[in-house]
Nucleic acid binder design. Structure first.
Length: 920
RNA sequence: GCGGAUGUGGCGUAAUUGGUAGCCGCGCUAGACUUAGGAUCUAGUGUCGAGAGACGUGGGGGUUCGAGUCCCUUCAUCCGUACCA
């Protein structure tokens, strides 16, 4: 064997681990760089080739940054709490901690084989008490804080209490669900319980009855980002709306800062756009309509105050609290029936037929604030209780939903913005002239909005308002395998544990199921109470709790006294480069931005945003292979012959297919029923069909990195993962191509060795060609890494090695630099070559060679000569020849007559050192 | 519906600022060495055409001396989102 990757890779992995080569120091003269991967949930299935893609990219970047003189923090850990381990525990009784431990061990083994330069001394696990102590600690800080809109930041709740004592709440501007105003006297006369209930409306994490996504199958509530299309993201179980008392995070307090902060981030536009949509900022006005014969006003939020004269009816959500008050007696039965109906329609059904229009007239009327006209008030389930005020002023002429509703129920309406044809559809554009609208007639939409809002304010019926779609995040889960809340109850009022009692460790339970009375699993724990005997909270925290500030723990992972020390945080600041999947766009990436801003407000960390630059690696798709069974037989027909038969296709394990040719012997062994299968072959082969699908066990297209490492080595796997295509693009995995990269690695090795595989290097001075090959590579690799284009660097290395092989170059001064620049990509072989070259220590801390432009300069330029833009021939001319001489030279060129076709050129365009174009 | 992304050989892709379209691989074809090859090496490989050459970056149009790249328009695929007033 010429290049023994098995031995060499093992050797260097051991060296790195024994010497703690990649241990990062918190204090260093070097500039810092923090490269973070989204830490994995260690699932039982282990890693497939898609998982390490991002880790390889971040590892290349980390190693490159070290070569460039940076002190690099590149840690790894585990998002160890999660549903699969708990579901497994429910089925088997095995403690989720054991399952998790086992899965982590397997992940670690797989990761180690790929040769990552992680600083494992800083490993974190979210389920480790030393870690979740700080998750609980942050929760307590949230509990003890409120959001002061005047200073636009979080502030201690103790300070709020002082204000209440001295002046009540009338001067407080907070992000709050508190509506009632009270004086200092009121406050001081309230009971402890009353005071605590009021404070709950201010705390940044609060316990409240809210409409939640309840998933009966999982026995828990889920956050909005954990639900898609009415089913749970994990498991795909149905989810229903239900009102429950739950902990929530008042993330809405930060809506504007989360929105505005996106502008300064070096993230892709697409992910910023997803976050903007999720936050859903819309500007408009809050308008108060009087209700005929009722004291309470009907408040609506609208983004189109300019269309106020086009209001033809009002619509409220069926859940709106005023519905029962205003419904007339003769409409009562119908309205109640409608409310029950819409309640029973699950979210899923509602989504399935959006087109179904339904509603009911309440018999009540609102009064138009300007015209005084009476307007029918309807209830309709197209109005969402959770958005705005849960009621809308309907302007059918200029809103398509109102338009559909009005037409369905034959409610008349008027056009108030010109420019559309409202006999056909609603005209929604904010473009046109206002008509039929009294004092704003003739105005442009924009001006009309301003005028109307000013009028609202003047007459006290409305105000400017910015509304957000973002909801507070439900933070309770009725599950076992998660962080316990550091909360106990006294007289039914929640209080935080003293910080000295953290961590509050997850207790043992006899079963991982809810109690008979429907309480969460922690209610099964013995003595689940404080030492004073107060009961502890039985819910646990959700998956995103432990991942919201984990990057700070990496900075100072062993610190028992602080989340992160001031010094460590001052040095590492925040994450310079974050690589992970785009599926976290609305979950983790928003929550951790929120936690970070909160910690920043408290002065605990020095940066307001956690992740400066974010890259989303594309999904690696599976490449499925198919065999075709002839109907009613155990005969399989090869792909190109199947058209002559009636067949059914069947997924076949891609690991027994090579280059789409089925390994028939392996296939027969694959499943017992296939042992006596027969085959109809083409050219003596069975050719399989191919399709690109998701990589999944059930589709038999999962490729395991371990097998590839065994067969080709980690360096080959790393290079091939990068070679597949641009990091951010989704692309199918096709093991076939890996051979090419494997050949390249062997070819690289041979540059440094003679035919008998003896290390052989010459100390001769390199020639121009060799220097050019090297320096053009140095230049390209730097540029590629700077723009995260790792696939193109791999081809660049191939070109370089091909050229040096052709030049028969074995000169130290070339090959030593080559070993350095390739080391981020293929670290094992580089270490070996580096040490064979006689260097001490790891190549990981060598100096990246400097690019010298003069080596790329040429005496002659080979100009492509085009006629009307079509390249016809090449002309070699001295590089310093100036444009007029070039024009002359090209016209004197012997072959030119053939292309001129006897014409005189209209124009000759010369781009110096680039191209010549002759216009005929 | 809305938002985002992507369309280039048989396949994965390259062309960073408008300047030789198809780099680097896979696969395929032929050959060398070999008992053998899933080893190694050499040559070829966008399409049509015997050739000269013509045509070619999803389709149509435009700007330009010159367009894969810029503009308009249209189609297809994938992802996200869902009555957000």
């Amino acid at each position: 064997m010429e290049y023994n990757f098995i031995e060499i890779e093992k050797k260097w992995q051991k060296y790195w681990s024994d010497n703690k080569t990649f241990k990062a120091e918190n204090l260093s003269e070097k500039p810092k760089y923090f490269v973070l991967d989204m830490f994995p949930y260690p699932s039982g299935a282990g890693l497939h080739v898609g998982h390490p893609l991002g880790y390889i990219a971040s590892d290349i970047y980390s190693r490159y940054k070290r070569l460039k003189g940076f002190n690099v923090l590149h840690p790894m850990g585990y998002d160890a709490y999660g549903l699969p381990a708990e579901q497994y525990a429910i089925q088997t009784g095995q403690h989720p901690a054991i399952t998790t431990e086992k899965n982590i061990a397997r992940y670690r083994e797989q990761l180690d084989k790929i040769g990552f330069s992680f600083d494992w001394d800083r490993e974190v696990r979210t389920s480790d008490p030393n870690y979740y102590k700080w998750t609980q600690w942050v929760f307590i800080q949230l509990f003890n804080s409120w959001y002061d809109k005047k200073s636009d930041k979080a502030a201690p709740i103790s300070q709020l209490i002082e204000t209440f004592k001295s002046e009540g709440n009338s001067n407080i501007e907070a992000a709050t669900s508190q509506i009632d105003i009270f004086s200092a006297n009121d406050w001081n006369s309230f009971s402890e319980k009353e005071q605590q209930m009021i404070l709950m409306n201010y705390r940044l994490t609060y316990l409240a009855d809210s409409m939640v996504n309840w998933c009966p199958e999982l026995g828990t509530v889920l956050a909005n980002d954990e639900v898609t299309d009415g089913v749970s993201v994990r498991g795909g179980f149905p989810v229903e709306r239900k009102s429950m008392k739950q902990w929530s995070l008042r993330i809405t307090a930060y809506a504007e800062r989360l929105f505005a902060g996106l502008d300064g981030l070096d993230w892709t536009d697409s992910i910023k756009e997803i976050q903007r949509n999720w936050i859903g900022k819309s500007e408009g006005a809050l308008v108060s309509f009087k209700i005929k014969g009722n004291e309470n006003p009907l408040d609506v939020f609208t983004t189109r105050p300019d269309t106020i004269f086009g209001v033809s009816y009002m619509a409220m959500a069926p859940e709106h609290e005023l519905v029962s008050q205003i419904t007339s007696s003769e409409k009562k039965t119908a309205v109640e029936k409608y409310i029950i109906e819409s309640k029973n329609r699950s979210d899923r059904e509602r989504m399935a037929d959006v087109k179904r229009i339904s509603g009911e007239f309440t018999g009540a009327y609102a009064i138009h604030p300007f015209t005084g006209k009476e307007i029918e008030i309807w209830i309709a389930d197209y109005v969402l209780a959770g958005y705005g005020t849960g009621a809308v002023m309907a302007v059918p002429a200029h809103d398509s939903r109102d338009y559909a509703f009005a037409n369905h129920f034959k409610i008349p309406f008027v056009e108030v913005i010109s420019g559309g044809d409202i006999s056909v559809e609603a005209y929604e554009a904010k473009d046109g002239i206002v008509i039929n609208s009294d004092f704003i007639n003739g105005m442009k939409v924009k001006d009309a909005m301003k005028t109307i809002i000013n009028k609202f304010v003047e007459s006290g019926i409305g105000e400017r308002r910015i509304n957000y779609r973002l909801r507070d995040a439900i933070f309770s889960r009725q599950r076992y395998w998660g962080e316990p809340f550091p909360i106990y109850y006294k007289d039914g009022i929640p209080y935080p544990l003293p910080e000295s009692e953290l961590p509050l460790e997850l207790p043992e339970v006899d079963k991982y199921l809810p109690t008979e009375s429907g309480e969460p699993p922690l209610a099964r724990a013995k003595n689940w109470e404080t030492k004073e005997g107060y009961p502890l909270e039985c819910n646990t925290m959700p998956g995103f709790a432990g991942s919201s500030a984990y990057y700070y723990r990496y900075m100072d992972s062993k610190n028992p006294n602080e989340l992160v020390s001031k010094e460590a945080n001052q040095y590492w600041e925040n994450v310079d480069l974050y690589i992970g999947g785009a599926e976290h766009a609305t979950g983790h990436l928003i929550y951790s931005r929120f936690w970070n801003k909160f910690l920043f407000d408290l002065g605990l960390v020095c940066k307001e945003e956690p992740y400066k630059k974010l890259i989303n690696q594309g999904m690696i798709q599976g490449r499925s292979n198919f065999v075709y069974r002839v109907k009613d037989s155990n005969k399989f027909v090869s792909f190109n012959l199947k058209k002559d038969f009636e067949t059914t296709s069947m997924h076949v394990d891609v690991n027994i297919v090579d280059n789409d040719e089925l390994n028939i012997e392996e296939f027969k062994k694959w499943r017992p029923d296939l042992a006596d299968a027969e085959f109809i072959l083409e050219d003596g082969k069975y050719i399989c069909g191919v399709e690109v699908e998701k990589m999944s066990k059930s589709l038999h297209n999962v490729v395991n990195p371990d097998i590839l490492v065994e067969r080709y080595g980690a360096d080959t796997l790393r290079l091939y993962e990068m070679f597949l295509g641009p990091l951010e693009q989704a692309k199918p995995w096709d093991t076939n191509g890996i051979e090419g990269v494997f050949r390249f690695i062997k070819k690289l090795w041979r540059l440094y060795h003679d035919k008998e595989n003896n290390f052989l290097i010459s100390d001769e001075e390199p020639n121009r060609k060799e220097l050019k090959a090297l320096h053009k590579t140095i230049k390209k690799i730097q540029e590629d890494i700077d723009r995260f284009s790792f696939n193109t660097s791999v081809s660049t290395f191939m070109i370089c090695v091909n050229e040096l092989t052709d030049l028969k170059c074995n000169k130290r001064s070339i090959l030593q630099d080559l070993a350095i620049i390739i080391s981020p990509y293929a670290p094992h072989i580089s270490e070996e070559l580096w040490s064979l070259l006689g260097n001490k220590g790891s190549v990981g801390f060598a100096k990246f060679p400097e690019f010298i432009p003069s080596y790329l300069e040429e005496e002659n330029i080979s100009y492509p000569v085009s006629f009307n833009g079509k390249m016809r021939f090449k002309l070699e001319l001295p590089a310093e020849m100036q444009v007029p001489q070039i024009e002359k030279a090209v016209m004197e060129f012997e072959d030119i007559d053939k292309w001129l076709e006897g014409k005189q050129p209209k124009k000759i365009i010369v781009v110096h050192k680039k191209i010549i174009n002759i216009v005929l």
